[in-house]
Nucleic acid binder design. Structure first.
Lengths: 346, 346
DNA sequence: GAGCAATCCGTTAGCGATAACATAGAAGAT
DNA sequence: ATCTTCTATGTTATCGCTAACGGATTGCTC
């Protein structure tokens, strides 16, 4: 039997009062039953539940939240959904929050600070119980809003900087440095960099900075670089690789700012019969699942996406259930290089 | 200057009253300024805005929504974020709604009807202005809730069935049939099917049904099939292809239920030096961007993801701005086969 | 059987905003 | 100078629910 079979086809939205009248008890009692709060006798409990179900009543959380000053939502903000990294983080956040009474609400900022500010404002106006937000770089106004919100804030995916409150992630500078060191140790010397043309992707920028810094320490520098924007990352990876190798044929290593373009580059090299990792070494970043299916395993470094999402959600859950807990947690994950088949080891 | 520099470090959350007192006008006037409603003189307007900004006030939409009985949220429910199809749809929905005052709120159902029901209940309890939900198959209770909600509902991605209200999508049965016909016309006869082990993915099921139905009309049937669950789709595509070809070596066509496993199959065949599409033809489904970068273009059929998201969001936007518009829109998109390089043409 | 706690349920007063109406002053009409 | 008509602002009454408290019953103790 359908949950809703209203005897009268009324159009007015249902309220507690309707359920109260249908079951012959006060609104307060109905409210208690529907929230499993306080003492209610088994008789009235079932009476109320039946009435609610047969009416098809859905409680109004807006009114409930206003009255109780509690909202079970957690705002989650990421820059994009196109890069699989973010859906993966969202998924792991969901998994943790599913076990609590909290509910995630996702927002997308398109890597634009103004948009981040707007979306954040919008989300905070619903008075969520916590915020999980990607990155440490935000507009002054956004930071002020986060600080003033008086709720747990977790900045994720990056730890190179000062968080407003808590943070969980990896150091992208360190990731860049470590990859550079591995490349240098393997004996590569003519190194090319391929990335996205996105000045606002701070994490990619930091990896690049860490990368060049470590190369510099070894007396090396990036011999050539190539950037792209838009389009299919895999196809772009091919194109860019062709472009850079045509322009600078003596490159012996290509570092890609993400695995998708790296995979494109790998496919290109294999097509052309280039010896990988002998003639040219390749490495990407992220550890995306996709790589498993490639003809050869691309060297990469995991961004710990699932772990980051999980830890962030756990921090929020813990702080919401016990507000007295100290704030400002800092969880720094340390990903290891996966050498795969495209980065030779010394 | 930061947006918020409260002179007193009060901990109590800010309300309209605080702004009202700070700017010396009534709460109502502050409300009018903040919503750009009604007539307010330029002098008071700027006075109020300044006060609000310096306090760092963020309006409470919960109270606002309760009082005005209007909520600018649109609930969007998809089964998963792992299949790139859904993030793409969400992105195109966002793009359309960004130009309106509406805001999407995303929910994930994991292909589970019970979870869909729960998430839907949760979302409806916030009284959104509309719902966009993937698929036409829902529990009775979910359908009842959708009908009773009294708001525009758009079911997307599938049109093989009866919608609660509006629907936008493609016919997966037809997609399966058309692919079968193209395969038959090209002269393939020993056909294998590879898909996901997901009884609740109704769209994949319908494609398969349409596929076998059209084959049957041509006097053919699926010679062998293989299913998988979990893991990297690309790697699984390789494994499954190896398995099915080992078991049934005389297959001359492989139809994959999605592009990712199809791509894995393609890479496998190329690795093994199999002549594609001469010895074996291949086809997938979805038209994912990824395919562009592959060594050879996989035959596929676009699911019209961007178009579906756009049309659905437009229906909601239109109906919200003018509730008198007739409901029950039905938009049936007709994707064409992309033959790529893996399905020979007669 | 008076006293007292426990159990169950109702009453009252908001939560923070907005709709709808009311009102004061300024500008224009006659 | 009086009467409109705006324009700009304030007042009042909800919106639907829950926190906090209060009042009946009931059952138990001594």
């Amino acid at each position: 039997m359908p949950a809703n079979s209203p005897s009268s086809p009324l159009s007015r939205p249902l309220t507690l009062r309707d359920v109260s009248e249908a079951s012959g008890v006060s609104e307060m009692t109905v409210s208690r039953v529907l929230r499993n709060r306080g003492d209610v006798s088994e008789t009235t409990r079932s009476k109320v539940l039946e009435a609610a179900k047969s009416l098809g009543y859905v409680p109004n959380k807006i009114a409930g939240a206003l009255a109780s000053q509690r909202v079970n939502l957690v705002a989650v903000m990421v820059p994009s959904l196109s890069n699989m990294v973010f859906p993966e983080v969202l998924t792991s956040i969901s998994q943790v929050l599913d076990q609590t009474e909290l509910q995630p609400v996702f927002g997308v900022t398109n890597y634009e600070p103004e948009r981040e500010e707007k979306v954040l404002y919008e989300m905070l106006s619903w008075r969520p119980s916590g915020v999980i937000i990607a990155g440490l770089e935000h507009s002054e106004a956004s930071k002020a809003m986060l600080k003033a919100a008086g709720i747990p804030i977790v900045e994720i995916m990056d730890v190179d900087g000062e968080p407003v409150d808590a943070m969980v992630g990896i150091s992208h500078r360190r990731a860049g440095r470590e990859m550079a060191n591995a490349i240098v140790e393997a004996g590569y010397e003519r190194i090319g960099f391929l990335g996205t043309k996105m000045p606002l992707d701070h994490r990619a920028r930091k990896r690049f900075e860490g990368f060049t810094e470590a190369l510099a320490k070894a007396g090396l520098e990036v011999a050539d670089q190539e950037f792209y924007s838009g389009g299919s990352a895999l196809a772009k990876g091919r194109e860019m690789t062709e472009t850079i190798l045509t322009r600078t044929p003596d490159l012996d290593f290509l570092y890609y700012s993400n695995d998708m373009i790296g995979a494109g580059g790998l496919l290109y090299c294999l097509d052309k019969g280039i010896d990988v990792p002998g003639q040219i070494g390749l490495a990407g970043f992220n550890g995306v699942e996709l790589l498993d299916g490639l003809p050869r395993q691309l060297a990469t470094m995991d961004a710990c996406r699932a772990e980051v999402g999980r830890a962030a959600a756990e921090i929020i859950a813990k702080r919401v259930s016990d507000p007295s807990i100290a704030s400002g947690e800092r969880i720094v994950l340390k990903p290891q290089i996966d050498f795969g088949d495209t980065l030779r080891r010394r």
